[in-house]
Amino acid sequence: MAKMIITASYLSLNGTDLSAYANSIELSIEVDEKEVTTFASGGWKEVLGGLKSGTLAIEFKQDVAASALDSIMWPLLGTVVTFEVRLTNAAVGTSNPKATGSVLIKEWSPIAGGVGDVAEVKVSFPTSGAVTRATS
């Protein structure tokens, strides 16, 4: 089994490559659990998968310079935008699949941190609609 160290992931929001600002990306997908147990279930709980949803969590190194991260993200607040993530910034392929979809930019922290801290922004955006995985 191959092992991998994440060193150069790819992140795009609204068609803009934001990889240079991000140091942590996590795309998690889940399915609602719906109980369908009946008297005929033999004393065992039965479940089916319901609606799918996802979350794109990102940790950014903040940059408030003109045309930098904060000026890119601020106008997106409250909108649904496309995203693409990959484990590496290499070309998409069978060894480097991409995940794409849309997310709601529901939060943004232009200022966060304390004395001596690195200026960072930690956000979590819910997916909107289908998330796809592709190798081409």
Rank of each mutant, 00 (worst) to 15 (best):
M1V: 08
M1K: 07
M1R: 07
A2E: 08
A2V: 13
A2Q: 10
K3S: 14
M4C: 05
I5V: 13
S9P: 15
Y10G: 00
L11H: 05
S12F: 07
S12K: 14
S12Y: 06
L13E: 00
L13A: 01
N14T: 07
N14Q: 07
G15H: 07
D17H: 08
L18C: 07
L18R: 05
I25A: 03
E26D: 13
E26P: 03
L27N: 07
E30W: 00
V31Q: 13
D32R: 14
E33K: 13
K34D: 08
V36G: 02
T38R: 06
F39V: 15
A40V: 02
A40H: 03
S41V: 10
S41F: 08
G42P: 05
G43E: 05
G43M: 05
W44Q: 12
W44I: 05
K45S: 06
L48R: 12
G50L: 11
L51F: 11
L51Q: 13
L51M: 11
S53T: 11
E59D: 14
E59P: 00
F60D: 03
D63L: 03
A65D: 12
A65H: 08
S67Q: 11
S67L: 13
S67D: 14
A68C: 09
A68M: 11
L69R: 01
S71Y: 11
S71E: 14
I72M: 10
I72E: 02
M73D: 02
P75T: 06
L76P: 03
L77R: 00
T79S: 15
V80L: 00
V80Y: 03
V80D: 09
T82V: 03
E84Y: 04
E84F: 04
E84A: 09
L87I: 06
L87P: 01
T88A: 04
A90L: 12
A90Q: 12
A90E: 13
V92C: 10
T94I: 10
S95I: 08
N96L: 11
P97I: 05
P97Q: 06
K98V: 02
T100A: 12
G101W: 09
L104M: 11
I105Y: 01
E107T: 14
S109R: 09
I111C: 09
A112H: 11
G113F: 05
G114H: 04
V115W: 07
D117C: 06
A119K: 10
A119G: 02
V121G: 01
K122S: 15
V123T: 11
V123N: 03
F125N: 01
F125E: 00
P126E: 05
S128C: 10
V131A: 04
V131K: 01
V131R: 00
V131C: 05
V131G: 03
V131L: 08
T132C: 02
T132W: 08
R133H: 10
R133F: 15
S136Q: 12
